[in-house]
Structures are given as structure tokens and as C-alpha cells.
Amino acid sequence: MLPLIYINNERGGMMLKLQNLSKTYGKGSVKAVDNVSLEIRPGEIFGFLGPNGAGKTTTIKMIVGLLKPDSGKIYLDNIDVWENPMEAKSRISFVPDTPEVYDKLKGIEYLNFIADIYGIPKDIRQERIEKYLDIFELRNAVGDIIGSYSHGMKQKLVLISALIHDPKLFILDEPMVGLDPKSSFHLKEIMRERCNEGKIVFFSTHVLEVAEKLCDRIAIINKGKIVALGTMDELRRYSEEKESLENIFLELTANE
């Protein structure tokens, strides 16, 4: 799989590139994200780790168009995300950490709405939606209004809505929180599958085992700065004795 990816890359293929991103909130003085640069290759599952308040959500929001960076650039497929938002957004889908969706719409109405916006024809949307409804066992609930859903059901609905247009870049903020074991198993499968098709999955998490098992590469961010980046093997090289990701994480993010 790996060689293929690099070939893609040389052809100027699909790739997510963050260049010197910085962001300070409001009139604050602390940089929530401080000069972050990352390159994520096609076919990669990229894990984004870091303690609370490290800047994960902030970084993700800048990629998906929810927060304008103070400085720095984000490219997807060589498209500047903030210069050509329409083109970039049609390739991205985003699952936020809290699933806020229109309470008064029925699940199926929301999915149709999203499909309309991405211009998905009826037969394709039906096929994809039904597939994911079965996977996430939401078939019996999509006719009800979203206000009647549990937290996890809302989250699954947002997941499905994010998969309708088969995005090249799938970004998730702490996707495993609140999902039952079966659903999070299926989600991991879906993430894996997408990468095998050469698409990118980028997610933040606090669950180190998931990151360790699932991710091709991992970045650890602390106080807005990337403190470690690489495959699991490369991360291990940061320190001889620290075998587990947990130990590496704890050492790198320790308050000096």
C-alpha cells in the first residue's frame, strides 16, 4: 500500500498540507495553535493527540472552515481552503465533538438536506444512506425528529451525513466519545476502508489504544505546538524505554 501512496503524491495527488498555522482566540494573548505545520498523505489515517486545551479542536476547525487562521495556509489537493472554500468544502466532511443538529428535522430529512447540498443524485444517496443506516442501526429511527435522539444516535446521524458524499478528507473530532462499542468498531472499519481507497482520515482522540492500533501516523500537540510526529515506530524512537504510546504521551506532554 505504501508505495502506491507515494506515487500518488508525486503526481500532485490528494494531500492535506498545513503550513505554519497560528490562531489566537479573541483578544486573548495565548496562542491556541502556534505555528503548526503538517503534511498528510493520501491513504493515511492520521491521529491527533494532546491533552485538554492543547489546540486539537482549534486546528480542526481551521481546516474545515469554522475558524479563520491568524496566519498560515491550509491546502487540500493544492486548493487553498480559505481562498476557494466552495471547492475545498465539497471534498471535506467534518464530524464535530458535540453533535449539534437541527432538532426539529427528521433524521431522513437532514440526510436528504445534506445530500442536496453536495448534489448527490437520488439512487446514489439511497444506496449510501441505507448502507450506513444498517451499519449504525439507525434504520428504525430516521423517520423521527432528531430532537428525540439520544446523544449517540445524533452522533451516528452526523457520521452518516458526513459519509454521504464520499469525502476525500474525513475529519473527526473525538469520534469515539459516546459511541457504543459496536458502533465505534464499525466506525474504525469505515475509517480503515476509506484509507484503503486512498482517501484521508484525520481525527483527534484521547483514546491512545485506538490511535496506536488504527493510525498510520500520529501527531502529539501540546500548548498549540506539535511536540511529536511520526509512525508508531518513529514515535518510539523519541525515547528508548518508553514502549507504550501512553508513556510517550505522558513524557512529551508533561509540564516542565
Binding site: D116, R125, Q126, I129, L133, R139, N140, D144
Partner: peptide
Amino acid sequence: ARVKSSDFQRQSPSCIA
């Protein structure tokens, strides 16, 4: 509340959606 085939609408333009 189960989905039916008729629940999947024909595609409409963004502004209508």
C-alpha cells in the same frame, strides 16, 4: 419511522434545500 424508498428525495438545488 423506518426508511422507505420514497423517503429519498430527488436531488434539489442548494437554495431549495
